[in-house]
């Protein structure tokens, strides 16, 4: 209780410093949040693209319908496979005509082969899995050719990995900057109260007792900075949505995690700077 009061008194005594602290925390978390938003949107877009990863097996004209049905049943039981669909020659023609529009007339019945389309479960669409499925399907004697856009799948995956690593690296960098900034603003408060702290130590206050108000100060600043950053990110997201592209916003859990993250950074920052000060004097 005393610590809370002390923390509040400290903020009241140096309101400008406190506001500055909260705003800097907010800005660093804002940068962090913006990146996070970009990251989740890239992820979302990739997921949508990924859903279209499929393996298509073109069938020999001589393929008899029973063995194809048996093969489809087999393939459908692969653990990686979500569903299997049969596309007859007629359906293939119809689809092609629809896609080609004005050139629809070029196609004649019998030009396009029948095929089976294999859709994979999510999480099973990485290049290695896709390739192994394709190879297995290729072993059926009535399968003429298997296509799954090898290069395309690999590129997609590389892009996703780059996005994940970049997101992680930048996220850590931003978090580090936020912790340093919080540490610095708390340090200013610590220095402003250096005399008070030295007297507290002389009369026998424990380090924890001295530290607690600063930790609470850091916590409150972290949470406030986090909430402010949330408002900034939300506004930024609205603007992008309004004038540029459709984006998704953080889920409730993510927002909660972000604010908790702010609080954590605040506490960590103040822990570092107060700890350093207490060791020195």
């Amino acid at each position: 209780m005393r610590s809370v009061r002390e923390a509040l008194t400290a903020s009241r005594r140096a309101p400008l410093l406190s506001i500055l602290g909260v705003v800097t925390i907010a800005f660093s978390l804002f940068a962090f949040g913006l990146f996070g938003l970009v990251a989740i949107n890239i992820r979302k877009a990739l997921e949508q693209v990924e859903e279209r990863v499929e393996v298509r097996a073109f069938l020999d004209d001589s393929a008899d319908i029973e063995s194809v049905a048996a093969a489809m049943k087999d393939i459908g039981e692969f653990p990686e496979v979500a569903r299997v669909e049969y596309v007859s020659k007629e359906q293939a023609l119809e689809r092609a005509r629809k896609e080609m529009g004005e050139f629809a007339d070029v196609f004649e019945a019998g030009v396009l082969p029948a095929s089976i389309e294999v859709y994979l479960r999510s999480g099973m669409r990485d290049p290695t899995t896709v390739k192994s499925i394709a190879d297995r399907i290729r072993t059926y004697h009535f399968v003429d050719d298997v296509r799954y856009g090898e290069e395309w799948v690999e590129k997609l995956y590389r892009l996703r990995n780059i996005a994940t690593v970049a997101g992680l690296a930048l996220g850590i960098a931003f978090a580090a900057v936020a912790i340093i900034i919080i540490g610095a603003t708390i340090r200013m408060t610590v220095l402003a109260r250096a005399k008070e702290i030295s007297i507290m130590r002389l009369v026998g206050a424990t380090d924890m007792f001295i530290r607690l108000p600063f930790l609470i100060d850091g916590l409150v600043k972290g949470v406030m900075g986090g909430l402010l950053a949330l408002v900034f990110v939300w506004v930024a997201n609205r603007v992008v949505n309004e004038y540029f592209i459709q984006t998704i916003f953080f889920s409730r859990e993510m927002i909660f995690l972000g604010v908790v993250g702010g609080a954590f950074m605040g506490v960590l920052g103040s822990l570092v700077s107060v700890g350093r000060h207490l060791r020195r004097v």
Binding site: K195, E196, G204, D207
Partner: peptide, 22 residues
């Protein structure tokens, strides 16, 4: 330990040339 030192200081009176008042 740090805690023991804090406890000890509560039983000491310490005075300086420059008073050290807030």
């Amino acid at each position: 330990s740090g805690r023991e030192i804090s406890r000890l200081r509560r039983r000491l009176g310490i005075v300086f040339q420059d008073f050290r008042l807030l």
